[in-house]
Design a protein around this nucleic acid. Sequence first.
DNA 1: GTGAAAGCGCTAACAA
DNA 2: TTGTTAGCGCTTTCAC
Lengths: 351, 351
Amino acid sequence: MAATEGGPRLIDVARAAGVSIATASRALAGTPGVRPAVAEAVRRQADELGYVANVHARTLAGGHSRTVGLVVHEIGDPYFSEIASGLLRLADTEGLSLQICHTGRDPGAELRQIRTLVAHRVAAIVVAGSGFVDAAVEEPARRELERYAANGGRVAVIGRHHLGADAVLPPNEEGGRAVAEHLLALGHRQIAVITGSPVLTTVADRLAGVHAALADAGLDPAAAPVVEGPFTRDGGRECARRVLAEHPGTTAILALNDDMAIGCLSVLREAGVAVPDRMAVTGFDDVAVAVDLNPSLTTFRLPMAQMGEAALTLALKEPTSRPRRHHVVGELVVRGSTAVTAPAAAGAATP
Amino acid sequence: MAATEGGPRLIDVARAAGVSIATASRALAGTPGVRPAVAEAVRRQADELGYVANVHARTLAGGHSRTVGLVVHEIGDPYFSEIASGLLRLADTEGLSLQICHTGRDPGAELRQIRTLVAHRVAAIVVAGSGFVDAAVEEPARRELERYAANGGRVAVIGRHHLGADAVLPPNEEGGRAVAEHLLALGHRQIAVITGSPVLTTVADRLAGVHAALADAGLDPAAAPVVEGPFTRDGGRECARRVLAEHPGTTAILALNDDMAIGCLSVLREAGVAVPDRMAVTGFDDVAVAVDLNPSLTTFRLPMAQMGEAALTLALKEPTSRPRRHHVVGELVVRGSTAVTAPAAAGAATP
DNA sequence: GTGAAAGCGCTAACAA
DNA sequence: TTGTTAGCGCTTTCAC
């Protein structure tokens, strides 16, 4: 600990090893062209002094960063924490550090966070939060990212954005379709959809899939109630109550994510509505706990950890002239919250 | 976009505004001593050029970092993602960026991650993963952090560590005691504990609380089966199976975290063991989904988000000569997985 | 109030 | 193989 505040510097190590700062740098970086014995001596001295290279100096001098940024809506949300987990695992094996930002689904915050990551000159930025249907909302962020990319930064997004970047695309529409078809196959005709704000592409795409399935079955999509609230567990509770009150003939509630489905199940339990006998419920995402609910949740599985990994993989590749699209495969997972038989007679739940 | 690869620099802004680089720096940093009109002009130019200050250059020159590091076992785990969420929220309002590392409960990885954060010269490091009972295991990390602190870094930990740092201390022992007393009060006498590895202080402390309660009730703590497995949902499944097979008289399973309790519930459901009638189950932590399980989970609530916030708060304060200890208050939350009445006759589950 | 210039700690030419 | 040196982009004295 010979050092002044800030710790030992490369020059301290070099002096201790009796070499120049350049040689010390090479030895520590593993650059070839240093006699093994010298390199070894340098490393030993570094170790002894507890030397840890200053990343800022290194990045500034070298021009390359070993940090990547991840933008999520909310890291406490399992959907995003599972994405983060997969991404972090890959980052770790690649020797990259991860900086996480959250936006709370606010486009303004998203822009601020992106600027922060740009300021850090991260090697890549992964935007994991849902895109917005209205391209204008994302325009400032798009410009910022475009500039960042023009300056050598790499960008990848998860979901459908208007960001002009490489994208990992979850099968939202297919999933919405699959879930709806599953309910239709069980005989449900009075299906209520509970959902987050349709300004999000995630919501819009899942809903489009649901409507397509209804139309294919000869039903009028416009006739199916769509009840909207926050895209969270509490939003699910709120919407479920409204479905119960305003659409009494409903035999199935199709939630556009697991969080809402979970909130919905809790309301139904409190209201004494048997699931799946009097009401079928489905979710979307297959977060880890979906299987542990009782009844366990029928849902459309998205491989979140893989999606995080895939996004970072895209971001780490050389850019192409036009954005890449990596399509992810999902899977309907049928569990206890939807009966394997036809629903109880519609209208049974009518007051 | 007049800039070379890397984006516009301060000097580009300064030139565009017709001032020196020093004035531009002051204007952008909000340092007093710049004529308002000039400052305004600089800011406008910066905006126009899309200038974003290089954090590395800034940190290197200024000596202060606006990034903090968080070390967790696994960010996909709700316990940690909720801690991260609380911490991130505070970091955000303080204008700090967050870098996250995970260790997978491996002390070696923990050391590596700490070194990475030191290399980044983060302003503070928060270690959120459980400590290890064996001080020797943490010794290398302790030395690294000590050196970091000596060089002006700030450290805070969550849980009992041998790291010599400010600590946020969850009431693990009290919680273990509370859960056990609750089961005892319900009349349970055949209580099996399922747990993660006792090398973790979190596990050791919770277990100590349980044993203390048993002893106070006049029972022999050594007589209560303690079944150990991974501190995860799957570990809970494994341990629950073993309890069923090896300790047939058991009327209550006390899991030392919610993850294990959740796995346990799923095994009991598959085995057709009614909860809470034939078997009571308790968890620890009160992760978000605990309330949504069916039966909902009786558990000891830890305010994870607050703990994350408190840890960062400690880390942001001026250091004191001896480590601070911030004690957190928890709360027993009684739910459906423990009956409100005495248990079914012991032995009912005997083959 | 403003500018010139000296670093911050490191990497990467370029020399030797 | 090793050393010298010029920056990387910014903050911050110190003069003016």
